[in-house]
Design a protein around this nucleic acid. Structure first.
Lengths: 240, 240
DNA sequence: CGCGGGTTTGAATCATGTCAAGTTAAGTGG
DNA sequence: CCACTTAACTTGACATGATTCAAACCCGCG
């Protein structure tokens, strides 16, 4: 395919982009897409890479094209809490504030499409449709955060683990959208990450996972691959 | 003051309204304000009153004019978790979704200014400035929810209590905006509410409060009135 | 005065954390 | 291909912070 000089063409990069219609880019018309694509920059980050760190103000936003990003906060004495996971095609970054005191780190290998802050903020002012999408993502993240507050505050360790497995399944197993009753997926998180997400220790995470395995609710392959033969049984363990 | 027939007048109700410039109404011009005011309706609710309940779809949004509203979620077996507090002039309601599965209940006596859903949503489409404000409120609530995730997941009982006291002070003690080092305020929550907010039991809440009192970090008058002679000492107990 | 809701206090129990020791799996270099 | 290293994970024994259950307390109110 040739690069079209006119602004009506979909930019080359975007044409093949999985985020083109999902995610925020779906809100843009051809002109806007071209403008943003011109300033955009694809990048890959290996598992564990820091994407944005505490006070260190980065002046980029990004779309997540693939992989999983963990958002976390740390207390001064080192205790850590993961406060959210982001999946493709989520938008990464906190508009209107440069100091969100939140860390973003690649949980798995990740590919991003990043934009300079200024470009996004200009478009935000021009396109209510773009702002609407971001607003909706924020509302969804708020709903998720509140769901996790319930999990963190009121569920037992094993309920927490079950809830997390369900959440990961929903976000990463494509067969979950259909009414399937079984699921298979890779854990994007290490045991330590899971502990930091659920407010537990690695040891408890490990114990509860093996308990779920011993009870035949899940089976574990290669430490990271989870198979759920009967989602209802897992849901029953999640305590909602 | 006479009611002005022209749309350039500030509606009577709004003229004396504390939420006029703060909160979302500040985003509206005279016309819009007049339109919304015409459909609006003030109401008072006593402490404990349900403002919106689970599936029960209410078709109103509201501004909180005074008092404190608690947002909570409940598990099927009755365990409850408060997932947020709202203060004047916060906007109450979840745009774009009628089934947020969240409960809103008056924590104290509350006065509201409520609007029909349809009116707000129409204005939302017409006024990017209004949407911007709501977007910003959502982002702020998201930041707060994530802060609480850290508190719920990684702090000890006494750190949780100290953190809550600081948060309440910030929101309800007007002297907190200045660099004051002391504070005095009323707890808008019962011990049971505090427990539901912090993922504890009433007993632990009580024990930790008396421990803070015995250690002279706070003093408690009438069970609800808290005096903090030295905010730095309280902050030191909050574990950030 | 007694009643009832909210709160405090005490003693026993339990879930989860802590500490320490294995085990597994994946390199890495000889 | 085999030691050797290292990080991630699991398992066990013990300690402890928070819950549970029970009782007492406080205070406004009929």
């Amino acid at each position: 395919m040739e690069k079209e000089p006119t602004s009506y063409a979909i930019p080359v990069l975007c044409a093949s982009c999985k985020g083109r219609n999902r995610g925020v880019c779906g809100a843009l018309d051809h002109d806007q897409l071209a403008e943003l694509a011109g300033a955009s920059c694809r990048s890959a980050a290996g598992s564990g890479a820091a994407l944005l760190w505490e006070a260190e103000r980065v002046d980029n936003y990004a779309n997540i094209l693939s992989g999983v990003v963990k958002l976390s906060k740390t207390l001064s004495d080192g205790r850590q809490q993961i406060v959210g996971l982001q999946f493709s095609p989520d938008f990464l970054g906190r508009p209107f504030r440069s100091d969100s005191a939140i860390n973003a780190q690649a949980a798995t290998d990740v590919t991003l499409c990043s934009f300079p802050k200024a470009a996004v903020e200009r478009m935000l002012r021009e396109s209510p449709e773009l702002e609407r999408r971001l607003y909706n993502q924020a509302l969804d993240e708020l709903d998720e955060a509140r769901d996790w507050m319930v999990t963190l505050g009121r569920k037992t360790a094993s309920e927490k683990i079950a809830s997390l497995l369900l959440m990961i399944a929903h976000h990463t197993d494509p067969s979950m959208t259909k009414g399937q009753n079984a699921s298979r997926f890779d854990l994007p998180l290490s045991r330590a990450d899971i502990a930091d997400f659920l407010g537990l220790t690695v040891e408890t995470v490990s114990r509860q996972l093996t308990r779920l395995r011993d009870d035949k609710v899940i089976s574990i392959e290669n430490n990271r691959q989870i198979v759920v033969p009967d989602l209802r049984r897992l849901k029953a363990r999640a305590g909602n």
